[in-house]
Amino acid sequence: MATAVWVLGLLGVALGALLGWVAVRFRRAGAPLADAIDKVLPQTQCGQCGFPGCRPYAEAIARGDADINQCPPGGEAGIRALAELLGREPKPLSADHGVEKPKVLAVIDEAECIGCTKCIQACPVDAIVGAPKRMHTVLDAECTGCELCIAPCPVDCITMVPARAGLAGWRPSRPLPRLTALVDAARLP
């Protein structure tokens, strides 16, 4: 009886020490959770999630203050990536926050623009250049398509155009399975 207690006790101490050592030795010296979440978000900075940008939303998710289905630009794929990262079940996009749309870019009708700089202040990524009383223009390479510049414009001279249009933006479509459609539907989410 005493031997058993001794043996089990020692074993417990030894294994506990081992576990502790492993925890220290192999601790993931990685980015905090918010960084990892921020990496997955599309960085549109549109605020549709209810937070002023992707980073604040990432921090809110990490704190547990926001759900993973509030990002319309990320869409289904984004939700799936978040779910995988956080080990949760994917869920449909919350309709309160918007709908998934194809990627767009803002274009300023330069003839209409009155140079009020309101859009410049609204742009979350400084993708609009211009000066007071001077016509503004959007840097295509930097525009995230967040649409935040639309509302402030007093003359409605900003429109959103599809980001990948025409021959240059053409993409082959995913092959359609001919017979295995049923199999695919059954196997894939």
């Binding site: 599309p42 960085q43 992707c54 980073r55 930097e142």
Partner: peptide
């Protein structure tokens, strides 16, 4: 299809990194 997807994904990643950087800078 897959090659185009990979290219688009890489481009999206590049753009989102750029947007993150510019957002932080702003």
């Amino acid at each position: 299809w897959g090659k185009t997807e990979l290219r688009v994904r890489a481009e999206d990643r590049r753009r989102s990194d750029l947007a993150r950087e510019r957002f932080e800078a702003r």
